[in-house]
């Protein structure tokens, strides 16, 4: 897609009802941001405990598949809150996001991280006994989510 067309879509999104609504309120943006942070906390817990187990740092007496199985619903829950609150935040300042490098890094990492967790990390961990590969999966997943969160925070500084 030509970037010109993309920019048109971005303007359309910024002018959307939700975008207008969030922008017109003094309180809504910070309040949604706060819940976005709580979603990050929930996702963060599932990522830290899951990936640190894969790395062999915590819960070594529990199997990797058990730890991933228990953290998975909370990963889903945290990610759902993040997406549901992230969409109105984005719509309210879509044009700013379009010109923000931090935003594009964040969105790329979010996509990579989500695909990685659901299609690579979880299926491998849940179907196999623990082996050295798990440490690599843990490092990758943890790093991607750290960059996603940090670059997300950075959108506000750009």
């Amino acid at each position: 897609m030509e970037s010109n067309q993309l920019l048109q879509i971005i303007y359309f999104l910024e002018d959307s009802y939700i975008g207008e609504y969030v922008r017109s309120s003094l309180w809504l943006f910070p309040v949604i941001q706060s819940f976005h942070l709580i979603g990050l906390g929930i996702l963060g817990g599932a990522v830290v405990i899951g990936d640190f187990r894969l790395l062999g740092i915590l819960m070594k007496t529990e199997t990797t598949s058990y730890v991933i199985k228990v953290t998975k619903p909370w990963f889903n829950f945290g990610l759902s809150i993040l997406i549901l609150t992230g969409i109105p935040l984005f719509l309210s300042e879509a044009v700013k996001c379009y010109y923000s490098r931090a935003f594009w890094i964040k969105i790329s990492c979010l996509l990579i991280g989500t695909i990685f967790v659901y299609f690579i990390r979880n299926p491998i961990v849940l179907s196999r006994e623990e082996n050295f590969l798990m440490k690599i999966l843990g490092v990758l997943s943890f790093s991607i989510w750290v960059v996603t969160a940090a670059s997300g925070r950075w959108i506000g500084f750009s």
């Binding site: 709580i38 963060g44 817990g45 990522v47 830290v48 405990i49 969160a149 925070r153």
Partner: peptide, 14 residues
């Protein structure tokens, strides 16, 4: 600070 909040709050959650 935000990343450490996620570690603190997320592990406390469990």
């Amino acid at each position: 600070h935000v990343l450490f909040i996620a570690i603190f709050f997320g592990t406390l959650l469990f």
